[in-house]
Design a protein around this nucleic acid. Sequence first.
DNA 1: CTCGGTGTTCGGAC
DNA 2: CGTCCGAACACCGA
Length: 258
Amino acid sequence: MPELPECEANRRRVEDGALNRTITGFSEGNVTHLDLPTPSERKRLEGRQFTEARRHGKLIFAGSATGPWISVHLGMTGWLDCVDGSFEPPNWGHFVICFEGDRRLVFHNRRKLGWMKVIDDPATYLDDTGVGPDAMEMGENAFVDMLGKSRGAIKAALMDQKKIAGIGNLYSDETLYQVGISPKAKGSDLDAATLKKVHSALCDVLDTLLAANDGGPVPKDWLRHRREAGAACGLCDGTIRKATVGGRTAFYCSEHQS
DNA sequence: CTCGGTGTTCGGAC
DNA sequence: CGTCCGAACACCGA
């Protein structure tokens, strides 16, 4: 599920379903190799309430002014859900925070690449981990500066959570496709005007996807609908190609992405 | 049966 | 230090 827009949808579910209720306990299933709060961390949570849910990049936080907070990374296949009453525990890895009134916050994680930990405060935690600015908050100047200084492939820079937080494989491709830049282009080779266009395209992609969380449309000409080698480009006469960039599979149009 | 994936981390090389 | 590469993590579906 998880790049910035999907993480935001998960954050909102936490906000809508897991705030202002006292934590009464925990349950879990199939949790080998899943990184979850320790017993003492769970003890810190018990009896407390979350009053706020935040997101930074792909991280989701829930907590209160006095703490503690949970910090959740969904990995490749994780999601958060709130349910009422008893529920059928899934067979896959999951961790449940139980609240008063039979409400549960369920952290599903099939592939077990995600994690949840307990922290004192999100701001301090973000400082300590060195994660970059959230993609929705990063201004044009900072964005142009960051890419202008990065000597590697622009796709790799966009996916580097220490440079800009929240962008992954799909939406780095989508942005570069829409703005007509090769994923292999080096940021430091592009002029400021071009990098501003990349910034604008990224904002459009994220805005559209956030709106799609509320039922908004995703344009038919997006790369998203044609992520396979040999597909017809939605924007020109070209053909979609596949390559490895920044350690991930990139799809791009060999014709209009120079 | 094998491969690959909306993610990250680690070690090693340059 | 910045960057790149391959491998690893665990699971499921094509």
